[in-house]
């Protein structure tokens, strides 16, 4: 695994950056952190579990819905492993 990213910092989107790590690390920077910080964290943790991957995830969120964050993470993970 290497560093990879997906998404953008446009409105309703999220930029997700993944990098190798032995421990699960999730860093969230969100314009709706107070209200949805927990929800965003949950999506990240669940998606990583589904893919059985442990790594570091940095999220810059501009009000993306859960499915968008999930999609961006999936893309970033695939890019980290493929390319």
């Amino acid at each position: 695994m290497k560093i990879a990213q997906a998404g953008t910092i446009e409105s309703n989107d999220a930029l997700v950056i993944v990098s190798p790590s032995d421990k699960l690390i999730v860093e969230i920077d969100s314009i709706v952190f107070d209200k949805f910080g927990d929800a965003i964290n949950q999506v990240i943790v669940d998606t990583l579990k589904e893919h059985q991957i442990t790594c570091k995830v940095v999220v810059k969120d501009k009000g993306a819905y859960d499915y968008t964050i999930k999609a961006r993470l999936i893309t970033a993970l695939r890019r980290a492993q493929n390319e």
Partner: peptide, 11 residues
């Protein structure tokens, strides 16, 4: 192309 596909699937 890959991220569009992932986004639409998740949507």
């Amino acid at each position: 192309k890959d991220s569009a596909k992932d986004l639409l699937k998740a949507y």
